[in-house]
């Protein structure tokens, strides 16, 4: 059986706190393992921060949506925003072999999302960025 939640956020980083509360509640209902909950928080925070900071360079107030679905096999999150087209799956991986002083500042968030999930999918359709992340569930012991 699948459990889902739909959340609409404004392009304001203050919304992260509300998002965390909603996701904590949802994670409890959906029976997410504490490590799954952590990964979900992390991915949401990194992706929402990117959307809020970069999707609407001209500013103004905008809404975007998040759909979370959890079943026995997967945790799936779909992000939709009507900001400038941006494909996170094409973002280059940071070079981890470089010393600290030479590492670029950007790209760490999406790197953590890649590492915490099993599948990333992106499409620009009907004027919207549609970005989906998927993570396999931990098997019950």
């Amino acid at each position: 059986m699948s459990q889902t939640v739909d959340i609409v956020l404004k392009n304001d980083l203050g919304e992260l706190e509300r998002l965390n509360q909603l996701v904590e509640e949802f994670g409890g209902q959906a029976g997410l393992h504490v490590e799954e909950q952590y990964a979900l928080f992390l991915c949401l925070e990194e992706i929402v921060t990117n959307i809020v900071n970069y999707a609407w360079p001209d500013g103004g107030e905008h809404d975007f949506s998040i759909h979370i679905a959890v079943d026995d096999e997967h945790i799936k999150v779909q992000f939709e925003d009507d900001g400038v087209p941006f494909d996170p799956t094409k973002y280059p991986e940071p070079d981890m072999s470089k010393p600290a002083s030479q590492r670029p500042v950007g790209g760490l968030g999406i790197h953590l999302v890649r590492q915490s999930t099993n599948e990333l999918w992106y499409q620009h359709r009907d004027g919207k960025n549609v970005f989906i992340i998927k993570k396999k569930r931990k098997k019950a012991a």
Partner: peptide
């Protein structure tokens, strides 16, 4: 009990 990329960047 939680760290995201913003916290890691503070360390870097």
């Amino acid at each position: 009990d939680y760290i995201a990329s913003i916290g890691i960047r503070m360390f870097i």
